[in-house]
Amino acid sequence: MTPLIETRKATRILRGEIDTTLVRDIDLAINPGEFVAITGPSGSGKSSLMYLLGLLDTPTSGDVLIQGKPTAKMDEDARAKLRLETLGFVFQFHFLLAEFSALDNVTLPMRALGKLSDKAMRARGLDLLTRLGLKDHAHKRPDQLSGGQRQRVAIARALANDPQVILADEPTGNLDTASTEQVFGIIQTLVGEAGRSVIIVTHDPHLARRASRRLHVVDGQLAPVPEDD
């Protein structure tokens, strides 16, 4: 079975007056249906690793393979297309477009991909929002929604093009306990649908323990998960 995402000695160095190594020599493979949590102390490079896995960033050396395809030498447009088709993102901040309604935010990736008719996009957007319990909020703008609701809209948007992988960077970092439980619960239900994998970056050990696999990052390298976690 081809892994969904695979890294080969992926290293990312930020060039500057002093070079900063964000991640170094990462070798890992994520298979369909896996629920992976990336943990580590702040500044350890766990977000940087996620950006590499999500093709938002390019490795300085090594490679990241998506469904067996090497991506390091792809141009920006090809990587953007791959992101649009196979990857879905949820960030710590909802990152919704403020002037667009919840529904318009959800249909945005579909419109960029342009595979469905306008009507089908709308229907699918409404479906996703309904599934996330936001049926009545489809036409509200982000500033009319609560933090938990916004994050659920962001999840709906991540699901817009039915991606193989959802990448979530501290998706509950800004939420209260009740909303955290709700949003995390939803993310958990996405795992395994049509072989979908979920990769979540978190500093919360309680949430990390609910994943099927944990990757612990220390100083930009994979390390064994600490026993007390």
Partner: peptide
Amino acid sequence: TRDIAIMKSLGLRAAL
């Protein structure tokens, strides 16, 4: 700038 970053992260092409 933030909106542009969001759109690009989702996979919208630079030309768009």
